[in-house]
Amino acid sequence: MPDATTNASLGLSPRDAGPAVGEIDERLFVASVGKAMKVLETFDKTTASLSLSDIAIRTGLGRSASQRFIYTLERLGYLDRDEQTKRYTLAKKVFRFAQSVVSSNTALDAAYPAMRDLAERTRETISWVEVDRADIVIITTIASTHISSINLPVGTRFPALSSSSGQVLLGHSAPAHIEKVWNASHESVPGRTRAKDAAEMMRILEAVKAEGFAVTEKNMEQGSISVSAAVHDRAGRAVGAINLSTLTTRFERPAAIRDLAPLVAAAAARATETLSA
């Protein structure tokens, strides 16, 4: 199984363009755009500032090509350059994309009142989550009021198949799609899910679909429990998930299933009803 992080867009052809789920039409694929996006994607929460050499190494584009893309992105306003250190950071202009994703999200608008009420009732971290190819992405979060809690900043990503939100959303997908997601997933997924292949993963997802919610555990700084349920649109499509994240010091798995899962499922059902009205 390929690593969705390290295999993304390191080369110059569509075949190396990252963990896309589905075939790429080489006649339509613009390689230069893929390279430019790879430069932007090099920046993350652990590498907020990078030198030209850093970018060239991380992207695999070479120093000369990286310099041209960096200059272009800086002139367009998507990168900032520190004149003293000669290092680059993402510019504020990139927030335009995040703002558009959130402000135009009708499903999130419909779900937010239920999310807010769930946060007030449980005092836990509540998030709206969507699938992006082989990952899930945190679109918005209502922070926990507990002193010790799970922090899930907007834009945080996890492998979909081993995440509770990904499982409730992909549980409604066709087997062929699950196989594509499996093949594009991070190498940690088999160990996390204990699934040996896509067929076994599909059986796990079918059980999640029948249950109506998913519960997964993560070993972060502290042990955590994640509980999710899917929200559906008028056509019955799973468009997003409401996720509750808590610490195992407050809820071990049996308690999370007994006490939290029904609340999350009820919130998702309420959001579905609002979205379908």
Rank of each mutant, 00 (worst) to 15 (best):
M1H: 12
T5Q: 04
N7V: 00
A17G: 07
V21K: 05
V21D: 00
E26M: 09
R27L: 13
R27V: 04
V30I: 11
A36W: 01
L40R: 06
T46R: 11
A48N: 09
S51Q: 05
S53P: 05
I55Y: 12
I57R: 14
T59Y: 09
T59D: 02
F69L: 12
T72A: 02
L73K: 05
G77N: 01
R81H: 06
D82R: 13
D82A: 08
Q84E: 15
Q84A: 15
K86C: 09
K92L: 07
V94A: 03
R96Q: 14
A98C: 09
Q99P: 00
S100N: 10
V102Q: 11
T106F: 15
A107M: 07
L108S: 04
A110D: 04
P113G: 11
M115C: 12
M115Q: 09
M115L: 06
R116E: 13
R116K: 14
L118G: 11
R123E: 10
W128P: 06
E130D: 09
V137D: 01
T140K: 15
T141K: 12
T141G: 08
I142E: 12
S144N: 10
S148C: 09
N151R: 14
N151A: 11
S162P: 05
V168S: 06
I178C: 06
K180E: 12
V181R: 00
S188V: 05
V189C: 03
P190A: 05
G191R: 13
G191D: 14
R192N: 11
T193F: 00
A195T: 13
A198K: 11
A198V: 04
A199P: 07
E200S: 15
I204M: 09
E206F: 01
N219H: 13
M220W: 14
Q222F: 15
V227P: 02
V231L: 02
A238R: 05
N243S: 12
T246Q: 01
L247A: 04
F251L: 08
E252A: 10
P254C: 06
P254L: 04
A271H: 09
T272C: 11
T272A: 00
